[in-house]
């Protein structure tokens, strides 16, 4: 008898679930891991939407955009979460995204004007090193000294591309010269962030290209205060991560609700200690303890998305020339 009751219960439960509309969100792989923001966000949104939120993951931000492009208008995605400022222009160009209609009081270092994409978190690229290791204060300082560094390849990694644009934005026509100066500091160029950070932790280099928020992980999760991010005189390049809804979605209401939900406390308070980035809207409770120790940046750098694509190709060519010698 009990089995029957359980079976009936299950049947009702599945029927109820089947009736709920499904909101499909494409996101990058690390967003929806058990230690990422995914599970928290899913539970919080499902509580208020009467819907079934489904995450589909694909590599990183660039892989996400590739996937949307491969699928084209036929895509099942309602929302894409995890593109960034380097990809916005290309994403908009596909014509697959619709205006969000979301407005919020963002706490971003820049004024947000894009009407299609909603920022959900942000961070600065920075070189991370050890407290008692070398601490160059600028690219020129780094190039002149003998501190060693591991960086990522801009052709296959998001931070690598960030660094490319950072040097270009800070130095313009002198960028190639700066890269030539850096060439003998660079131990190696890795395909992705993971390899580079791993090499750094193994002691292969004094510095690694990462984020200003990286030390927060070591401090909060590992109680290790030996890792620091270095403030650079030129300023730091900004990365804003965004979400957008697909024009062809069959759940426009839900998708819009979700984009609005992104700017609320329930979403934003999960970001700092799961995604290790700054929330786009500072939650009421403020930032977790430890974030106050991070490098404060007074000169945020960001290439306007529309101009980025053209600059990118030229900058890549300079980078390759300077480092291939």
């Amino acid at each position: 008898m009990r089995h029957l009751a359980i079976a009936t219960g299950l049947l009702f439960a599945t029927q109820a679930a089947a009736q709920d509309p499904v909101l499909t969100i494409y996101t990058y792989d690390s967003f929806n891991t058990e230690w990422g923001p995914g599970p928290v966000v899913e539970a919080a949104f499902e509580k208020e939407c009467g819907c079934d939120l489904k995450f589909v993951t694909a590599g990183d931000g660039a892989a996400l955009l590739s996937r949307i492009r491969l699928e084209g208008a036929r895509t099942e995605a309602d929302v894409v979460l995890g593109l960034d400022t380097a990809l916005i222009a290309q994403a908009a160009e596909t014509g697959l995204f619709a205006p969000s209609g979301v407005e919020a009081g963002y706490n971003l270092p820049i004024t947000w004007r894009d009407e299609t994409f909603v920022p959900f978190d942000w961070g600065y690229f920075a070189f991370v090193g050890l407290k008692d290791g070398p601490k160059p204060g600028s690219f020129e300082d780094l190039a002149a000294g003998d501190a060693t560094v591991v960086i990522q390849d801009p052709r296959s990694s998001t931070p690598g591309l960030g660094l490319l644009m950072w040097v270009k934005e800070a130095y313009g026509d002198r960028a190639e010269q700066v890269w030539e100066g850096l060439a003998d500091n660079i131990v190696t160029v890795t395909p992705g962030w993971s390899e580079a950070y791993g090499l750094f932790l193994e002691g292969e280099a004094d510095l690694v290209l990462s984020y200003t928020t990286s030390p927060a992980y070591h401090l909060i999760a590992e109680e290790d205060d030996t890792k620091i991010a270095l403030p650079f005189e030129e300023g730091h390049y900004l990365q804003v991560e965004v979400a957008g809804m697909l024009a062809g979605t069959d759940q426009p209401e839900l998708a819009r609700d979700f984009l609005q939900f992104i700017t609320t406390d329930a979403f934003q308070s999960a970001i700092p200690e799961t995604n290790w980035m700054y929330p786009a809207v500072t939650p009421d409770g403020g930032l977790p303890e430890g974030f106050d120790t991070l490098v404060q940046v007074d000169k945020p750098l960001l290439t306007a998305p529309e101009a980025a694509a053209g600059i990118r190709d030229a900058a890549l060519e300079e980078w390759r020339r300077a480092l291939s010698q």
């Binding site: 660039a62 892989a63 955009l65 590739s66 492009r69 290309q90 390849d153 801009p154 052709r155 296959s156 060439a183 660079i186 131990v187 190696t188 160029v189 890795t190 395909p191 390899e195 090499l199 890549l316 980078w319 390759r320 480092l323 291939s324």
Partner: peptide, 27 residues
């Protein structure tokens, strides 16, 4: 990954990385 990580820089670009670039960077 081996070639790039241990290769030390863009000198050590392999065809597979060129495919990555064509695919991710330029689609």
């Amino acid at each position: 990954a081996v070639a790039l990580t241990l290769g030390g820089g863009p000198r050590s670009t392999t065809v597979e990385l060129a495919i990555y670039q064509a695919f991710r960077f330029e689609f």
